[in-house]
Write a protein that binds this DNA or RNA. Structure first.
Length: 474
RNA sequence: GUCCCCAUCGUCUAGCCCGGCCUAGGACAUUGCCCUUUCAAGGCAGUAACACGGGUUCAAAUCCCGUUGGGGACGCCA
């Protein structure tokens, strides 16, 4: 498929959320797969709800996910002249007409229809009005055909037939002269030569209306691909009730963008049994042929698992930059602190398979980087007591005498002391672990000691012994 | 109320278009075991699904119809 042009067209009335990100991603993948163009278009015709902040925030989210666009951001508010001129033409050709009903009247009629169980569609009362004076405070409605059928041929859903009698004369220009969505989307998709409209299936019902606008304007309709929705755990539309929905919230929780992308793409798309994909694999394999039709429930646990997989598979040095903000946030380092990167990479490498998020990674890094540790109460109670004081003292002396302070050297010392004190390795390793990390779980204690270093390690064991002795007196 | 979409393990899905290879495969979660200095990671094993009812056919998860259930739309929102 050549000259593919697709667009992501969010309205800046909120942050980039999970659903929007998935739509953007599928557009982006389709464009990249076909070596086409991916356009960002901001649909900000609702001036009361759109804000500059949300525009920035949406772009920030897309950048974080590495969904780069080739054109745009275009803004509909910059294009009002275009919509007006097309609209004028439609009115002149009798394809659109002025409507003098007020929003209040309309709302009343809707309520009444609802109560009576009747159709909520516009009753068409201004449709054949003779006056058609250059309506001051009049809205403009599009004249829909009332008979016949319209077929939407969707790349994902297949063929859907709508009775034109179901379509109502929608407003294309508000009485304040600003255009509305179903109209601007068509004008823009025509002007921008969009070849494939890829969006959520909540727009499927709008499609027949838009098809008529295309033909009224004299244009060929693009191809459509309506993506299934993403639902929350209760199968209701995904919302804040179900947890974080904004993309940047996942960044803040310590997720890697690649993991989110991987998770999102598997919501509705599959490639055999494969679960983990590189971006290039995604681009290579993406097609609407293997996009499913049914809605998917957002499952945070699987996202978390994928994130842990991405952390495990990363090169440790590639985790340094991403983890820094979390080290700062956790007050483990000061902003701008320099590191011995080789040392830090080594520390990170011991923690990768134990960290599901960058936040967890940062928290564990605390016992490598910090000058001191805080004991977890239960860990201290269980292992920093008289029962282990001999073991701690014994290992401390042996470690102090060790010149070759590497994990292999340390391991030998532990074995010797265990033998000498006639105790199991665990009876030495666990109290030392608590003394060094403050916790009962950590990477292998020999490598932890090596990375923490001889000086700090001895200091921490000393402190543990001191605390036990003080506890005895008190 | 009207219209539209959808329906395989708790969840994401493979299989469905082109019926037999399906005693329905994989993944997350969950349970047990192995490995082990702890926690993980990893390995192995287990529990668990074709919504229901009719057809068509020698044969249906796969095709058709209906029912039920879920979702969406019906805005001077997008």
């Amino acid at each position: 498929m050549n000259n593919v042009r697709v667009r992501f067209a969010p309205s800046p009335t909120g942050h980039l959320h999970i659903g929007g990100a998935r739509t953007a991603l599928f557009n982006w993948l389709f464009a990249r797969h076909n070596k086409g163009i991916f356009i960002l278009r901001i649909e900000d015709t609702d001036r009361t709800r759109s804000t500059e902040e949300y525009i920035d925030s949406i772009m920030e989210g897309m950048k974080w996910l590495n969904l780069d666009w080739d054109e745009g951001p275009y803004r509909q508010t910059d294009r009002f002249d275009v919509y007006r001129s097309y609209c004028k033409k439609l009115i002149e050709e009798g394809k659109a007409y002025y409507c003098y009903c007020s929003p209040e009247e309309l709302e009343q009629r809707r309520q009444k229809a609802l109560a009576q169980g009747k159709s909520l569609r516009y009753d068409g009362r201004c449709r054949n009005l003779k006056k058609q004076g250059q309506g001051e405070n009049a809205a403009v409605r599009f004249r829909m055909p009332q008979e016949g059928q319209t077929v939407v041929n969707d790349l994902i859903k297949g063929e859907t037939v709508f009775d034109n009698s179901q379509l109502d004369d929608l407003i294309i220009m508000r009485s304040d002269g600003t255009p509305t969505y179903n109209y601007t989307v068509v004008v823009d998709d025509v002007d921008m030569n969009i070849t494939h409209v890829i969006r959520g299936d909540d727009h499927l019902n709008n499609t027949p209306k838009q098809i008529h606008i295309y033909s009224a304007l004299g244009y060929k309709v693009p191809l459509f691909a309506h993506l299934p929705m993403i639902l929350g755990s209760d199968k209701a539309r995904l919302s804040k009730r179900h947890g974080a929905t904004s993309v940047m919230a996942y960044k803040d929780m310590g997720y890697l963008p690649e993991a989110l992308v991987n998770y999102l793409v598997r919501l509705g798309w599959s490639y055999g049994d494969q679960e983990v994909f590189s971006i290039n694999e995604l681009i290579e394999h993406f097609s609407f042929d293997n996009v499913g039709k049914s809605a998917a429930v957002f499952n945070p646990e699987k996202l978390l698992w994928l994130n842990s997989q991405y952390i495990i598979r990363a090169e440790p040095e590639n985790l340094i930059e991403p983890v820094k903000p979390f080290l700062i946030k956790e007050k483990i380092i000061e902003e701008g602190r320099a590191f011995n990167e080789e040392w830090l990479s080594k520390a990170i490498s011991t923690l990768q398979e134990r960290s599901k998020t960058l936040l967890e990674l940062a928290q564990s890094l605390g016992y490598y980087i910090g000058n001191d540790v805080e004991y977890v109460v239960k860990a201290k109670e269980k292992f920093l007591n008289e029962k282990y004081i001999a073991n701690l003292t014994g290992i401390k002396e042996a470690l102090a005498a060790l010149d070759n302070f590497t994990s292999t050297g340390i391991e030998k010392v532990f074995a010797e002391i265990a033998d000498k004190l006639n105790t199991k390795l665990g009876n030495i390793a666990q109290p030392v672990r608590v003394a060094i990390t403050g916790r009962t779980e950590s990477p292998g204690i020999f490598e932890v000691l090596e990375i923490v270093g001889k000086e700090k390690s001895l200091k921490r064991i000393d402190r543990a012994i001191k605390e036990i002795n003080e506890g005895k007196k008190g």
